[in-house]
Each structure stands twice: as structure tokens, then as C-alpha cells.
């Protein structure tokens, strides 16, 4: 139990000391949030609703990013640099190690969500009911699961460079095509059709619904579950193939 706590603590310290994390997961979303709600005129009919909507977009964007990138790249690094091999000969079990990474990562997400929400409240005075803050935060925290699974999938890659490249591209494509940067409604019809099937859109949409006095749609939940299952099965399959050598 002590090992688990220490491991969680270590994971959290490592992430917060990582400059890329601070830039990509905190500064960047807050900056984008400021720009698209204050500097650029988006011609939104309801400015208050747009500010709340875009706050959710950016928070989801941040959490999705650290799920895919931080976790995946770190896994590849630890393996290629031999740290995983060292951990394997210590009494720490694989399960506790993995659980601690997930728990540490979730704590980091909680931190990001809190910071970005506060930034939204300070920058634009976004005001939601306590329940809305809570539910949207929880949704983003829990809904990030398929992206964590995607992160572990990327974590199976052989080289850090490939993992970094692939996760960057995936991250950006998912964000843009899923309507996190610009709402799907203003995109061409085909983009909209595709976007609705992406995990990023369904992730964001749950939070958007919550702040627009609704609840996440069932198909949002189902699609996220389906993606989680897909990514987990894939990584299980790949891991088995890698072990066979």
C-alpha cells in the first residue's frame, strides 16, 4: 500500500515537473480559451453560452491531450530506457505499478480540470450551478478513459519519436475533427458526419450538454465505451504478439 502511495506521488511530481505538460495541457488551452472568447469575434448568438461551451471544449482538449501524450510517451520512454526492466525485478507488482500510473494520471486530470475551470471563471466570469461544475468536471474526468486506453496503446510503440509523432497527430486530428476547436455545426456536412463518430466529439459533447442544461446522450456514453473496449483489446493483442518473440 505504501508502495502504491509512493508510486502515485512520484507520478504526480513527474508530470507537474514536465514542461511540455504545463505548456500543452495548461497554458495552451487557457490561451486558446482566451483568444476564442475574447480576441476573435466568433459571432456567437449567445455569448454567455458560448463562453461556457468553449470552456468545456478546452478542458476536454487538455485532458484528452495528457491522456494520449503524457501517458503513452512516458510508457515508451520507460521501456526503451530500461526503467521498466528494472521495475520488473523489484517486488512491485505490474498491477500496482499500472494502477498507480492511472491514479496519478487521474489526479493530474483533476488538477487540470480545476485550473482551467478557475481560469474560465476568472477570464470570462463563466458561472454555472454547483451541480453543473461538478457534473461536467466528473464527466471529463471519467470520460477520458478511452484516451487513457489509447495512450497505453501508443505506449506499446518501439520508439519515443514515433510515439511522440503519432500521438501529436492523433491528438490534433481528434481535437479539430471532434469539434473541440471550432464547433462541429459550422463545419462542412461530411466533416460533421465523421466527427460525430469520433471519441473526441462524444467526449466533448457530454460536457457541452451538461452546461447547456442537458445530460450526456446515451450514444455519447456508448461510443466512448466502444472505443475503450477497442483500444484495450488492440493493446492486449499487440502485447501478446510482442511477448511471443
Amino acid at each position: 500500500m505504501r508502495a502504491f502511495q509512493m508510486q502515485c506521488r512520484a507520478e504526480i511530481i513527474r508530470v507537474t515537473r514536465n514542461r511540455y505538460f504545463v505548456f500543452w495541457s495548461l497554458l495552451m488551452p487557457i490561451l486558446l480559451y482566451y483568444i476564442f472568447t475574447n480576441v476573435v469575434n466568433t459571432h456567437a448568438s449567445d455569448q454567455t453560452a458560448w463562453q461556457a461551451h468553449y470552456l468545456m471544449s478546452m478542458t476536454a482538449f487538455s485532458v484528452m491531450g495528457s491522456s494520449i501524450m503524457t501517458l503513452g510517451i512516458r510508457m515508451v520512454q520507460e521501456r526503451t530506457q530500461g526503467w521498466s526492466a528494472f521495475i520488473r525485478i523489484t517486488p512491485l507488482s505490474d498491477r500496482i505499478y499500472f494502477a498507480a500510473q492511472m491514479a496519478g494520471q487521474s489526479f493530474i486530470h483533476l488538477l487540470s480540470i480545476t485550473i482551467i475551470f478557475i481560469a474560465g471563471a476568472l477570464i470570462n466570469g463563466v458561472s454555472l450551478t454547483a451541480l453543473e461544475w461538478l457534473l461536467s468536471g466528473l464527466w471529463i474526468l471519467i470520460g477520458s478513459f478511452p484516451f487513457l486506453a489509447l495512450g497505453t496503446l501508443i505506449g506499446l510503440m518501439k520508439k519515443v519519436e514515433t510515439a511522440a509523432g503519432v500521438s501529436n497527430v492523433l491528438y490534433m486530428v481528434l481535437a479539430v475533427a471532434g469539434g473541440m476547436w471550432i464547433p462541429l455545426e459550422v463545419m462542412p456536412k461530411t466533416m460533421q458526419t465523421i466527427g460525430k463518430w469520433l471519441p473526441s466529439y462524444n467526449f466533448g459533447n457530454g460536457a457541452w450538454e451538461i452546461v447547456h442544461d442537458g445530460t450526456p446522450n446515451w450514444n455519447n456514453i456508448l461510443i466512448l465505451i466502444a472505443y475503450s473496449a477497442l483500444f484495450m483489446l488492440l493493446s492486449k493483442y499487440i502485447r501478446r504478439k510482442q511477448e511471443a518473440v
Partner: peptide, 27 residues
């Protein structure tokens, strides 16, 4: 058992004392 592998690897992002405390907690 304890070991030092041929390719020394250390966990990035942690200070030496923190790493020592972390690994000690495994035993």
C-alpha cells in the same frame, strides 16, 4: 535480489533522493 543492469536507466523527472525513497518503498 538487487540488480544493476548493463544499460543504466533512471526515471526522469525525479530527484535522486525521491527515487531512493520510491524504490525503498517497494521492499
Amino acid at each position: 535480489i538487487g540488480t544493476m543492469l548493463q544499460e543504466v536507466s533512471v526515471i526522469p523527472g525525479l530527484k535522486v533522493r525521491e527515487i531512493l525513497e520510491l524504490i525503498r518503498s517497494y521492499y
